[in-house]
Design a protein around this nucleic acid. Sequence first.
DNA 1: CGGTGGACCTGCTGGC
DNA 2: TGCCAGCAGGTCCACC
Length: 273
Amino acid sequence: MPELPEVEVLRRSLEPHVVGRTIGRVEVHNRDLRERVDRRRLAPCRGRQILAARRRAKYLLLDLTGDRTLIIHLGMSGRLTLVPAEAPRGTHEHVSIQLSSRQRLQFRDTRRFGLVLVRPTTDLERDPHFAHLGVEPLEDSFDGRLLQSLAAGRRSPVKSFLMDGRQVVGVGNIYASEALHRAGIHPRRSVARISIDRWRLLAQTVRQTLLDAISQGGTTLNDFADGLGEAGYFRVSLTVYDRQGQPCPRCERKIRRIVQSGRSTFYCPGCQH
DNA sequence: CGGTGGACCTGCTGGC
DNA sequence: TGCCAGCAGGTCCACC
């Protein structure tokens, strides 16, 4: 579910409620996430204060005192929600983090593709989860020239390139299709055959699509919600994703669904080339 | 080296 | 109603 916009919306919604709070008891009800949850690293988070709520790629980072960062990744179906401390355990609530505000952060994840980790803050960039991450689309350095240089010597379809976290982070299956539609670029086009003008346009549309989604609270297809349980409403702004057979708002041709690398891609055959 | 396909999980939907 | 196939927002790894 959550791509960059959803994680950023989550981060912004939690920030005013968690920064400055102190972590209390941490309970792990089910360790079997994408990686085994390490109780020995989580338990000592108790008593540490939350200094900042940051985001890197699709990871939410809670920096704690004592050079520790609590790292949360939502995978496909993860949710992180602030609830009253005494609220009953939610379904698939695998990790519960009590806060000094008499609230608790509940990590729920039906499919268990998510992650909950603790690492030294000073070491994050060297951790294998972060060491090979690509460029952040919302950073100033993200532009057409940079995309072109990252793609140099490659021939992969542009959609796969956008979704390759070693090149560009945060763009997942929804926003890759949406940004390519806005840019008028066919998802199967090889990155070797994209002009600098089109790279510039693509950098712009990727960034703007993500910003638009953030400003509308993200995309809720089934279960995404921010840290306070609010759904996002960018779904109504999706122009191609999950809309096969419906007319393209720009040229009226029917939206198509194809499969690339095992994932659905949606595009308009009339205005994407 | 680079790209694709399968694996990891649970739950929902649609067709028969 | 029941059953089964197919699909789902992410990431990693084996294999060609």
